[in-house]
């Protein structure tokens, strides 16, 4: 049973691409598309890592990250932030809010795979 990765992303083609890459590498990918209900999902099932898009319907990825870090259960949960806006202040904000890593779309498949491997290796 591979480690569980929760992918929070609303763009179907991107979900499919990331899921394909990580599944091939042996990880279990769960996906969630709506920003409003992410926390509910986490209460049911805690993943080993989260890949979080910034621009989500309902709620921004930053708000979700803030909630995660405020919750003792998810304080140390590895979070990889993805954004398509590509601005530096998004990166800074993400890291300040406690993201472990930040990637700009479009990303290289190998980068995502390597980062997830690295994060979940221990």
């Amino acid at each position: 049973m591979g480690k569980k990765v929760l992918l929070v992303e609303d763009e179907p083609n991107i979900i499919e691409a990331i899921s394909f890459i990580l599944s091939r590498d042996g990880f279990t990918v769960h996906t969630h598309e709506d920003g409003m209900t992410v926390m509910d999902k986490l209460n049911v099932q805690t993943p080993d890592m989260i890949i979080l898009d910034v621009m989500l319907p309902g709620r921004s990825g930053f708000d979700i990250l803030r909630d995660l870090r405020a919750d003792p259960r998810f304080e140390t949960l590895p979070v990889l932030m993805l954004t398509a806006r590509g601005q530096t202040h998004d990166r800074e904000l993400a890291l300040r809010l406690g993201a472990n890593h930040f990637m700009t779309k479009p990303f290289s498949n190998s980068d995502i795979r390597d980062h997830v491997r690295e994060t979940l290796a221990s």
């Binding site: 763009e11 083609n13 991107i14 691409a17 990331i18 890459i21 621009m55 398509a84 806006r85 590509g86 601005q87 700009t104 779309k105 479009p106 990303f107 290289s108 498949n109 190998s110």
Partner: peptide, 16 residues
């Protein structure tokens, strides 16, 4: 940026 990068992301990812 967002609107352009989103399809680009899919394109790049799937082409890879």
């Amino acid at each position: 940026s967002h609107e352009l990068r989103t399809p680009m992301t899919s394109i790049r990812s799937f082409s890879e």
